[in-house]
Write a protein that binds this DNA or RNA. Structure first.
Lengths: 187, 187, 187, 187
DNA sequence: GATGAATGAGGATTCATTCAT
DNA sequence: AATGAATGAATCCTCATTCAT
């Protein structure tokens, strides 16, 4: 019951921030959407920034965990891992496009402070780089610079989501995983 | 002499916004950086938002023009065009990383109003899609969905720039053009 | 308790604006006078202009209502009606000279927008003209141009209030009603 | 030639301030209307306020002088004097309604400083009161309180001008002198 | 825990005035 | 004398955060 209110607030925040952007979102709008009082938000979050951080923390953690789980499965090739990851990600976004909007858009944050979010935003490419790197070492993938490829891949993911969300053509997301895999398959 | 002051302001704005982000940038900081008075900015721009718009307008126009020029050269294959475009873009960013930072980061703007910026942000992927699409029709490229590929490519460009700028590893940008071409090369 | 704060703000605003004039009045002074924070004013009024509007709206409405009530009493002659109105008005001003000062002074407003205030400023002369006009038709008063006479009467009222308030000779207001009636009594 | 520029500026100022009001009038608009540069205004006036002051000073001086001249003519009764004064005033306003607008409207000024304007605004009623008072002493007029009557008369003048100017019914001004004399004529 | 009125620091913008040309 | 770009003090308004109820 208690934890539930926190969820309600986060959901409301995701919606409003997706529509308006972090800086244009007023705490009172989040409260309105969540059908609670502004003050109540501060019983669960220390600040507006923390709300955004929590959103990022959760979503990125989910994805990092998912990726970690895939790595633990020795049966899978690097290609499989990336494929599964992409499919999961795009399918999640399709289920909650608001979230997708925020995840690709909020690259600008309250200065300095929120190292937190910046951190998450780095971890995923890093993890992707790791996967690519180990695949490369095992001869599964021919890539020269895993960091670069991971950065490109991560950007491509964002680009596709952004496009799909902006045009509300969520069907783009269905083909997206397959499409992006071509990027890793080289002669 | 007159037009010069506008340039000075824009340069200062690019620097400060790159460091601090649009919303965190105070007009007075731009003025300080440009070594002028705040009021002077308003002799050249109607608002803070207009400053950002002008930056986007100029940079995107440059790139669109460059791409258009490449299209006019019948000697070039699609691959050449994209390659040249990427090389130019990454080299520009390397020369002015602050600009790169802004161009990839400012996806959130003063609400509704700035259709302007949103417009530019779409035009480039659209143009890329066009190039890919016509190449596809001429049998030069095997891609299924030019829109999707263009979105991925555009995102990948942003991702690479973002990574390079964030880690200040500008050497990443040297290999980037070559790397991203893999988006177009399939078995 | 809630509505009370709005009253406190209005009272403070009347005082400060009377002393300083609308344009010279800073929102922070109103807040200081009301012993609240600036932000609080904005919980009750949308803008500085709206504060002034509310003052005008209330005071003019009071007077229009009073005049309307007098018109509904068939026992009264036109002279009685005007007399009562003037007595009430002058007595009100005597009780709150600050208000008097504002009511006669604020003829210049934030451009265009405040049709509201302009409206009130017209309604009272119009109403006076009506009373005069109907009195004329009933042979109670000999006046040629009710509009003109009403404008003069309205101006005379303002002139007397202005003089009394400026010189702080509020006793002028005691004789004022009687004096102005001479204006309507013609051979 | 030199003095001429000052006149041009004053005319432009009267026009713009009549349309926009003192506080809403920008110095640059006056300059535009006068077809000169802003800086030039400051070669003739020390400040925006001084421009308004000069307007008031001139117009009120004109009227005070006119009234003084009428007083010097022993042939005239008080009624004649007032009548002539009113006719002149209303006719002047009819010729330059912009001026009329300013003269009745600008009761709020840059605080404290401009005692000047406040002074003029008092002098005219004072002078009127003098005329009435001496007429009273000579048994020409039956009025009890010359100050009060003068204030009412002055207010009535303003009221009529205001109405005429606001509705652009300048014909009201033709009858106005005759009408206002009723203030002096009692049973 | 929930509420929402009160708070006040913060910042974009305006515009009278200056002064180098 | 005329110019008009540059100046920066001044102020309205916003909104995240607090806290008494």
């Amino acid at each position: 019951m208690n934890g539930e209110k926190k969820e309600i607030i986060l959901e409301a925040a995701v919606e409003v921030m997706a529509e308006e952007g972090y800086y244009n979102t007023k705490m009172s709008w989040i409260a309105d959407r969540a059908e609670i009082a502004v003050g109540t938000i501060y019983n669960y979050f220390g600040s507006k920034e923390e709300v955004l951080e929590e959103i990022f923390a959760r979503e990125f953690k989910k994805r990092l965990d998912f990726l970690a789980a895939l790595e633990d499965d020795p049966e899978l090739t690097a290609r499989d891992r990336i494929k599964r990851f992409l499919e999961k990600h795009f399918s999640d976004i399709k289920n909650n496009p608001s979230l997708g909007k925020i995840l690709v858009r909020e690259k600008e944050f309250p200065r300095k402070k929120s190292e937190a979010i910046g951190g998450y935003l780095n971890q995923l490419p890093n993890k992707l780089a790791e996967v690519l790197s180990s695949a490369h070492q095992q001869g599964q993938l021919k890539i020269d610079n895993p960091d670069l490829t991971a950065a490109a891949l991560f950007g491509a993911i964002q680009g596709v989501v952004e496009r799909a969300v902006k045009l509300k053509e969520y069907s783009l997301l269905d083909e997206a995983a397959e499409e992006l895999l071509f990027f890793l398959e080289r002669k």
